[in-house]
């Protein structure tokens, strides 16, 4: 389920860890930029990354050749990388999410330490706002 940066599908011999990492990136990029792909190519790529179908299975399903599916997947992978390189949405998203999570956990800790005081209540509100921010990101 993996294509390299240049859109080349990683060879079967590629290190399992690299291959999986690559696949994880593509899956995240797809969630951000998938809508920019054409309707049919989007469905094919989705079957590939989200439903974990093989090229042969997808080919059978859509009445395409395995090579045809390979080309679509390869092209989509390269496009997704290109979008991320220009827009960095996935990278920014994970940074914001990480920071919001840090705010949430520190505010929650603070709220615990401050107890029922007005300061404690305000820390609780901060934690709740951070939590809302995190869920609104999804």
């Amino acid at each position: 389920m993996s294509t390299g940066k240049d859109g080349k599908i990683c060879s079967k011999k590629a290190d399992a860890k690299d291959w999986l990492q690559e696949a994880a990136h593509l899956s995240v990029y797809f969630s951000f930029y998938g809508e920019l792909l054409g309707e049919k190519t989007k469905r094919i790529f989705e079957d590939y990354v989200a439903n974990d179908m093989s090229l042969a299975e997808i080919a059978r399903e859509y009445g395409l050749s395995r090579q045809g599916v390979y080309d679509v997947v390869k092209r989509c992978g390269a496009k997704l990388y290109e979008y991320e390189e220009s827009l960095h949405l996935a990278e920014r998203f994970s940074k914001v999410e990480e920071q919001a999570e840090r705010i949430r956990s520190e505010a929650a800790e603070l709220a615990g330490a401050l107890g029922d005081s007005p300061e404690g209540e305000s820390a609780t509100r901060i934690a709740r706002s951070a939590e809302e921010l995190i869920s609104s990101l999804q």
């Binding site: 969630s31 951000f32 079957d47 989200a50 974990d52 179908m53 999804q138």
Partner: peptide, 23 residues
């Protein structure tokens, strides 16, 4: 095979055993 669950931007998969015809 894997089946994707989880929220939109946070992929999370289950490892499932299924008939090959029902991906």
């Amino acid at each position: 095979r894997l089946r994707r669950m989880g929220q939109k931007h946070a992929p999370f998969y289950r490892v499932i055993v299924a008939d090959e015809r029902s991906p």
